[in-house]
Computed example of a mutant assay.
Amino acid sequence: MSGAVAGVCSVFVTGTDTEIGKTLVSAALLHGLNALGLRTAALKPVAAGAHEIDGIWHNDDADQLDAAASVVLPPAMRTPFLLRAAIAPHLAAAQEGVTLEIAPILACHAMARQRADVVVVEGVGGFRVPLTETLDTADLACALNLPVVLVVGMRLGCISHALLSAEAIAARGLRLVGWVANQIDPAMPFAAENVAALSMRLERQYHAPLLGHVPHLTPSAPQQAARHLDAARLLHALQSQGATPS
């Protein structure tokens, strides 16, 4: 293990909605942590939307995480629930006769922690996406008991979405260790002012620093996005008291 890390750190990446850049930011954080000399691994525990290549099912988000991580996990460990239809996970699972269970995900995370210095776990959709009739992704985050990074898709309405997500994270007893502004709407008026408003509120209410503001990238490029993120600040937050579960 790298001498820069005291124990293994893990972080749960969630977002204010679907398609707001969780995978881009997760991959960018992996690149940034790699640059610090750390062994990184990624989990995408539940992925909905798969295509077959040479007899093997792939998910674009999971493949992007694999490309960014320095330690590539076996597909069944990285994504224990790979669903074929690109729809809400609980609906895709019902179509395939699959029950989305938390226990296998916890087991995969435990194995991943044995292989890397830092494990980035990317959620699915927003913070409260249904997994079953009774469980959602907030329950998964609680079961993993990990600090959380919130990706905010910068567009009209994002301030309310971000503050509601932060409130839900805190209500579950989880620590919001930072947030990332991802500029999904390049024409958003007063984008910098919106980032400043959110930064003030998230820092004041949740002690969650801004880890970076990723500009609109076409096409999305995790290595380029990594230049706009402070991976060292995230690592410090993860290693601080109470950020890493025992």
Rank of each mutant, 00 (worst) to 15 (best):
V180Y: 00
Q183D: 02
P189V: 14
M188T: 13
I159A: 01
L163Q: 12
E193Y: 07
R172I: 08
S160M: 04
V177R: 00
N182P: 02
A171D: 14
G178L: 05
L176Y: 03
A181W: 12
A171I: 10
L198H: 07
L198W: 15
A171Y: 03
L163I: 14
V195T: 14
L163G: 08
I169F: 00
A168E: 15
P186Q: 14
F190A: 07
L163T: 12
M188Y: 15
S165E: 02
I184D: 00
P186D: 09
A162E: 04
L202Q: 07
G173N: 10
L174M: 13
E203G: 13
F190E: 12
A196Q: 15
S160C: 05
P186I: 15
P186A: 12
S165V: 12
G173S: 09
N182F: 01
L176F: 02
V180F: 00
I159K: 02
E193D: 09
E193A: 14
A181H: 11
A170M: 02
L164T: 13
G178N: 02
H161Y: 04
A168D: 03
W179Y: 06
N194A: 09
E193M: 12
A171V: 08
L164F: 05
L198F: 06
L174D: 02
I159M: 10
A196I: 07
R175M: 03
R175T: 06
A162Y: 13
R175H: 03
P186L: 14
L164D: 12
G178F: 01
L164P: 08
A171P: 02
P189S: 15
H161L: 06
V195Y: 12
N182W: 01
G173H: 06
W179S: 04
A166T: 08
G173L: 13
L164Y: 12
R175I: 04
L176H: 03
E203Q: 15
M200V: 11
S160V: 10
A187Y: 05
A166W: 07
N194I: 11
G178Q: 02
A187Q: 14
A181V: 08
E203F: 13
A168S: 11
E203M: 15
A168K: 02
A170C: 02
R175S: 05
L174H: 03
R201I: 13
G178H: 01
A166K: 11
V195N: 10
M188A: 08
D185H: 03
L202W: 15
G178I: 09
A187T: 13
A162D: 07
I159N: 01
A170N: 03
E193K: 09
A171T: 10
M200E: 14
V195C: 12
S199E: 14
E167I: 01
L198R: 15
G173M: 15
A166L: 08
A197E: 09
L202P: 06
V180Q: 00
V180K: 00
A170Q: 05
G173D: 08
A192T: 14
I159E: 03
L202F: 12
P189Q: 08
H161K: 04
S199V: 05
